[in-house]
Design a protein around this nucleic acid. Structure first.
Lengths: 236, 236
DNA sequence: AGGAAAACTATACGGCGTGCAGTTTTCATA
DNA sequence: TATGAAAACTGCACGCCGTATAGTTTTCCT
């Protein structure tokens, strides 16, 4: 009885998963714009309208994809961070940042989906997994900042940041994990993030191509300088 | 005779200008996705196909708009730079960066058009005014870096950058203007740009909203830290 | 005045998201 | 096990889009 009840649900879950899988494949081969309900349905041998049984609207589907992709990014950088030696801030930063750039280069469409203007007219909803993943990313960076803070504090302790300057949802994740960290360190983490994001974003969108022929060298220089600017002297 | 010859050309130029104007208005009110030939034609009381007499394709029109908008951005930051005191690197940087962020906040759709993925399926062409404007932006930043270089050199002179690491078209503009500048300074300028771009891009696309409630404070902190990291001690 | 060229319209095709009505399949219950 | 509701799905339609082709009107040079 319970098994027959579960059958429809199982089929439903499988179909949902297939829709998402096909959508990601379409995105990988044709960019975010290739995510169309009709193309997905064509690929699956269905009618476009059948998808409305699983996602209320195309933007709903895109939101789900963003959530998935963003979560995968957050997992990738977190895994890189964890696999680096714990007491070596420079190595941690390099691992984290390298994983971020590698993920973006491996998955440029995913990067565009998450950080760009993924689909015509799409506007991100308020809640969902994406802000969560963003918080995970930022929390990971805060971990980097926390490990570097003993070195960096004298240089960054100024700046009149207060807890009220940050999103409460982010602080809920950050403050329990790093109780001793001041607001300035969270600001530092955000700024480190923006540095990495800026460079990778320019590279992914091709705006660096008209300037430099070796974005990787630029990225490495950025990391070197970042680590030095944090006052980290140990070798990673 | 010459005047009658010029008449059609004048009308043509006016129509071309109106198409661009209407397109920019549509973009300002409805985002880059609102730039559709049919909407423009509707607004102008024409048929959509009439536009094909002025632009070979929709992407051609978008390219022209990007060129215009990018050029306006380049002009805005350059004007800000020029209006700041010449011997005060900190003030110059603050003026330039502030103008960049202000332009982006005032004209977010333009920012998306220039730095994002402006229109479904659009791929930027190789040449045109956009790379020129990008070079102007980078040259402006190189001017900042050049003014700061006397302070910054000891910290940034390392990094094994060579002239071959950069785009020749960019160097053609940069090297004549700053003959004594080493490649490391150009790399520094690019990195400064990526910092500013990263922060502003996150803010424009709303990815900062899930983290901080005061992006401006973050931006100011970034500038303060940037100026300090360049070794500039004078007050601007 | 006449003819070429330019500007523009009309029509059509295929693609898109999506609403609505109808049909088939699935499954709990009487 | 027959039945009726709910779920899954199809078909059709509408209005949007870019754009190709063909035909029409306007403009200008000779």
């Amino acid at each position: 009885m319970g098994s027959t009840t579960g059958r429809r649900e199982r089929l439903r879950a499988e179909t949902t998963a297939e829709i998402k899988k096909v959508a990601l494949e379409l995105m990988a081969s044709g960019g975010p714009d290739a995510i169309t309900l009709r193309a997905i349905a064509r690929e699956m041998g269905m009618t476009a309208n059948a998808i409305y049984g699983y996602f209320a609207t195309r933007d709903d589907l895109v939101t789900t994809l963003i959530d998935n992709v963003y979560t995968s990014l957050a997992g990738a950088v977190q895994a890189a961070w964890e696999s680096a030696p714990a007491l070596d801030p420079a190595a941690r930063i390099q691992a984290w940042a390298g994983a971020f750039r590698n993920w973006a280069l491996t998955n440029p469409e995913g990067f565009r989906l998450v950080y760009g203007d993924p689909v015509p007219g799409y506007r991100p909803p308020a809640g969902g997994a994406a802000p969560d993943a963003a918080h995970r990313v930022c929390t990971g960076l805060t971990a980097l900042a926390a490990e570097a803070w003993p070195y960096a504090e004298p240089r960054y302790a100024d700046g009149d940041f207060e807890w009220s300057d940050f999103d409460p949802g982010l602080l809920d994740k950050v403050r329990p994990a790093f109780p001793d960290l001041p607001p300035a360190a969270v600001a530092l983490a955000l700024r480190i993030w923006s540095h990495l994001h800026g460079l990778v974003s320019l590279e992914i969108y091709g705006h660096l191509r008209t300037q430099t022929l070796s974005p990787e060298k630029l990225f490495r220089a950025e990391l070197t300088q970042l680590i030095r600017s944090l006052g980290i002297t140990a070798q990673g």
